[in-house]
Design a protein around this nucleic acid. Structure first.
Length: 222
DNA sequence: GTTGCACCGGTAATGTTAAC
DNA sequence: GTTAACATTACCGGTGCAAC
């Protein structure tokens, strides 16, 4: 992309933001014909009409809206990149954070509050899902940090243990518990409600039954 | 190093058009 | 009719490049 192309896109963004070529010209410290020419060059180069001219009134077309939205995101990312490397501070910009549902239920609010307090220049986007889905996104570089249980992650991802997650069974209050620890054979005949197959917990629970040579009679996914 | 030319991008002036 | 805003045109200055 040439500098001239970037200038054309800046002109288009400014016209969209301020609502007129005249205002955009003032904003960019240029004369109105320069803005008019830049927008026209941009339209010609892309072979699309970005603005509908109705005499002295202009209206953004759907294609214009789409292009400038994309330009905003792209140039915004470019500015963020420049700022990040200029300041040598990695803790700014957007942090894509993923977490499994159990962690999200218990600690998400506290974690986000701490991040915002300690790193005010950092914006966070949160994805909550089961461990399988979150790990997959992390491996695919769709997330920067993920909090999961029993993660199987590729080599480029650094792992750090932050705590232990204890599993437990939950049952109706009237369920007859005859001893402290239940075995797979105690539960195999019941209707079990467990996590979906993408969750690590699903695999863990089924392995618990398989190791004891018990096949659960009825399993539903939540 | 200097000169002349072409090209590009800018501005000022003017025309055009729609809203009031 | 007036006003405001975009389009068009003419002209100017800076820059790159080839020729000398």
């Amino acid at each position: 992309m040439t500098m001239r192309s970037v200038e054309r896109i800046h002109a288009g963004r400014s016209v969209r933001r301020l609502g007129s070529f005249h205002a955009a010209a003032e904003d960019l410290h240029l004369a109105q014909p320069s803005i008019s020419a830049r927008v026209k060059e941009l339209e010609s180069a892309l072979n699309v009409q970005l603005f509908v001219r109705q005499g002295p009134r202009i209206r953004l077309t759907a294609e214009g809206h789409a292009l400038i939205e994309l330009a905003d995101r792209t140039l915004g990312s470019a500015s963020e990149l420049v700022e990040r490397f200029r300041t040598r501070d990695p803790l700014r910009g957007l942090l894509r954070l993923g977490m499994n549902e159990s962690f999200a239920l218990v600690s998400a609010t506290d974690l986000i509050e701490r991040i915002e307090r300690h790193y005010p220049a950092l914006r966070t986007s949160i994805f909550v899902g089961d461990t399988g889905a979150v790990s997959q996104m992390l491996a695919g570089e769709q997330l920067d940090v993920a909090i999961v249980s029993e993660a199987h992650v590729p080599g480029h991802v650094k792992q750090e243990v932050i705590g232990k997650n204890r599993f437990g069974w939950f049952a109706h209050a009237g369920f007859p518990v005859t001893r402290e620890a239940l075995s797979p054979s105690d539960l195999g005949s019941l209707h079990l409600l467990i996590s979906p197959p993408t969750a690590r917990l699903h695999e863990t629970v089924l392995k618990w039954f398989t190791d004891a040579r018990v096949t659960p009679e009825r399993v539903s996914l939540r």
